[in-house]
């Protein structure tokens, strides 16, 4: 009996640690689904020539410091992503807290094959000071 309990516990433990590991950006995922997914799509591919992709996007790397401001305040005017020009205004998400923005950036930077930098609260806060 004790042996069964032990194995049962072991299995439960494995499952819990496993799900924990594979979802290390799960908070950001939740925010992405609420705020970003309907335009940038669940797989981050964007929408043709209207909405730029996040998956494999060079813009994320080139404008790393600007990302917090873009997410918080939105963006207008032409931008070039992976050589393609986009010109559809994006609304900001003013209700986001600094920590939320950090979680979102970390999620996006580590999804769909992206291998961007890992940001944190302090860095996002510093970058938010530079918003225009």
């Amino acid at each position: 009996m004790r042996r069964y309990l032990f194995f049962f516990g072991l299995i439960l433990f494995t499952i819990f640690t496993w799900t924990d590991c594979s979802n290390s950006y799960s908070d950001g995922k939740y925010l992405y689904e609420i705020h970003c997914q309907s335009c940038h799509m669940p797989d981050g591919i964007g929408l043709k020539g209207l909405i730029p992709p996040l998956a494999g996007s060079d813009y994320l790397k080139k404008n790393y410091d600007k990302l917090p401001c873009v997410i918080l305040l939105g963006i207008e005017g032409e931008i070039v992503v992976n050589g393609k020009t986009y010109n559809q205004p994006m609304a900001g998400i003013p209700e986001l807290e600094t920590m939320d923005i950090a979680l979102l950036i970390n999620y996006i930077n580590h999804q769909w094959g992206n291998d961007g930098k890992y940001t944190d609260f302090r860095e996002v806060e510093a970058n938010l000071q530079k918003c225009e």
Partner: peptide, 15 residues
């Protein structure tokens, strides 16, 4: 065209 919620997704599937 400026719809921020469901339109991009519906446009994708209309596409």
């Amino acid at each position: 065209t400026t719809c921020p919620s469901i339109c991009p997704t519906t446009s994708l599937h209309m596409g």
